[in-house]
Design a protein around this nucleic acid. Sequence first.
DNA 1: CTTCTAACA
DNA 2: TGTTAGTA
Length: 179
Amino acid sequence: MRIGELARRTGATPRALRYYEEQGLLTPERRPSGYREYGEPDVDTVRGIRTLLAAGLNSAVIAEILHGLPGPGQRPPGPTCPELLDGLARERARITRQMDELAEARGLLDAIMGAEAPSEAIRSGRLRAADRRSAGEREQTGGRRPRQDGERRPEPTGGRHPQPVARKLDGARSRTVLE
DNA sequence: CTTCTAACA
DNA sequence: TGTTAGTA
């Protein structure tokens, strides 16, 4: 597909798609006309890129993710780059802090607007305890036990979910394996 | 009409 | 990132 279609299907502007390419995030083929030719998987890749960009990651980091993690079918290239991994752990921590800041801002708006927050009306009763806890708190209590400190990610060798991050960035491939 | 590159009141 | 110019 050409840039226009990919743009329509991802919500990114053609300008942005060319920029992603300039940043090494995408490497579309070229038609003899010079027009860029994108593949179906690029749709999910772009969505992943936009999600990460919106979360505050810069294109350099995203490029590392795209280049540092093996695609489907590929074998993990040597030692699954530990530097990249904890770099991502830092991004994750940053996002968590950001979530807390947003929650605080929302709380301030709720106070300004009056006790009856929208969430109050939508839900039947009071906020669930889990929602009242900060993202940071949920980070340590809810769901699976989060990896912490210098704890390493379990080896993806014989695992059921090899390279989850790469697959997350490529929806088409992730739905096949993760679900 | 769509895309391309280059450039910036 | 937007947007415009001048093409192909």
